[in-house]
Design a protein around this nucleic acid. Sequence first.
DNA 1: TTTGAATCGTTGATTTTGTCAACTATTTTT
DNA 2: AAAAATAGTTGACAAAATCAACGATTCAAA
Lengths: 143, 143
Amino acid sequence: MEVQRNSFRYLFADTVKALFKQSARELANAGIQILPEQHFLLHLIASKEETIQSDLAEMIHKDKSAVMRHIDQLESMGYLIRVNDTTDRRKKHLVITEAGKDIMKQCQEVIDVVTERNLVGITEEELEVFTKVLIKLKQNSEK
Amino acid sequence: MEVQRNSFRYLFADTVKALFKQSARELANAGIQILPEQHFLLHLIASKEETIQSDLAEMIHKDKSAVMRHIDQLESMGYLIRVNDTTDRRKKHLVITEAGKDIMKQCQEVIDVVTERNLVGITEEELEVFTKVLIKLKQNSEK
DNA sequence: TTTGAATCGTTGATTTTGTCAACTATTTTT
DNA sequence: AAAAATAGTTGACAAAATCAACGATTCAAA
């Protein structure tokens, strides 16, 4: 196999695209009107104590205005609210609503199924090496 | 480590993006006016006996019109030509020119450097597992 | 053998997604 | 007190992809 080094990055990109397309489709099929990216944002917000928009922008390596629009959508769908910081009035904290928690649960169920299907034929050890490489790749790309 | 299953797809997407951005930047720095994606297309065309546009579209999972535009650009830059099939007049074969071979070599040199930098700290075996998992993931997502 | 379906390339309109630049309001630094 | 930095917002723009439609051609079926 001579995929390595030469063109693994393309296989890589193509696979990501296929995975995202698939989960976007499955989410839509389940009647969930949310993009995988937005689900991820909810996930990030939920997994931290406090989150403001500029943190998110840095985390996902996108312009703050891009994040802004996602948050706008999520807010208009009622999945989160912006809460003004009491001490620093520039900041707005992102807080997930009950509806937000609900949709996250729904998303998770769909995505779990998709993920399991995607991982068929891949052993636990292989997955472990895979994520390890992934993390290294990302670290290296940030230098 | 609890990256697994839940959010590995996002780490995944983010990493790909970073890698592509980086190689696009390096190519531009080297004065090469070609996108990583276009380099990949040249690579695909070169690695097969005969290639037509709709094959490429299927291979990279994009609409044929998207491929069309890339090919237009590559042709206008003189890196390939469209040659009419003699028996099936709907088809046009994509043939890489000398200039195309030349630019591919230049790209490869740049990308090799970037790739080596990206792969620091990753062993040959790990990379092998990584690509193996990628291939499986891709196959699974296409079902 | 003629009719209808499918394929290939092409184009234009549209959508999605992101960047960039500018601005206001606020806070921090000097 | 002035200058610089930060957070959020908005609008203009750019890149890249999708979708829908079309003409030309080939293939399949009746």
